[in-house]
């Protein structure tokens, strides 16, 4: 396997594992994926003997790859946990959302959307899996992690290159 992908795979997997541990995210917050990207670049540089500088483009690409792997693994972990426990944060927050819509009489749009959410909750509770829920989780993870991963890649490249200077 290309070493570029290997360091991204390892760090992406590590970041995804950390997202599932309660309490870790309250410490690392939005810096988890960028830190994983920085470590990925560091590992990549270590694996390339004689490499003095990493191109910014390569750094951003590595950050993106790390984020991509992190998003895929994190989504997979969440879906597996949802399947095993037949619950998720959506199921937990559903009664509150329903009460809000009823109390505030928010109109047909809100009621329609709550129906979609209800359907997801129903599927999660009965089958442990909802296609729409899986899609939404994966899509949101992919989008946000990619942005933060690329930023991490950019910062990581700057840090590592300046260290060599």
């Amino acid at each position: 396997m290309n070493k570029k992908y290997l360091s991204a795979l390892v760090c992406g997997f590590g970041a995804a594992v950390l997202t599932t541990i309660p309490g870790i995210q309250s410490i690392a917050c939005c810096l988890l994926v960028p830190i994983a990207s920085i470590i990925s670049i560091f590992l990549y540089k270590k694996s390339q003997y004689g490499l003095l500088k990493i191109g910014t483009g390569t750094g951003i690409f590595l950050g993106f790859l790390t984020a991509l792997f992190a998003a895929l693994f994190a989504s997979a972990f969440e879906l597996v946990i949802t399947y095993l426990t037949r619950t998720s944060d959506l199921v937990v927050s559903m009664p509150q959302a329903e009460k809000l819509v009823k109390d505030m009489n928010l109109g047909p749009a809100a009621e329609e959307s709550i129906e979609v959410l209800k359907q997801m909750v129903k599927e999660i509770q009965s089958k442990g899996f909802s296609f729409l829920y899986a899609f939404l989780i994966t899509a949101t993870n992919l989008i946000t992690y990619s942005i933060f991963g690329m930023l991490g890649g950019l910062i990581g490249t700057a840090i590592i290159n300046k260290r060599n200077n």
Binding site: T19, Q25, S26, C29, C30, V33, A74, D89, L90, A97, L100, V101, M104, L106, G107, A109, A110, S113, I114, V116, L117, L136, I137, T140, N141, I143, T144, Y145, F148
Partner: peptide, 23 residues
């Protein structure tokens, strides 16, 4: 006031923040 939109918004930011209400 769209529950699905709210859910998506919360989900997007939950990937980068713990969102503990006290914090």
């Amino acid at each position: 006031n769209n529950s699905l939109f709210d859910f998506l918004l919360v989900k997007i930011y939950s990937t980068v923040c713990h969102q503990e209400s006290a914090k």
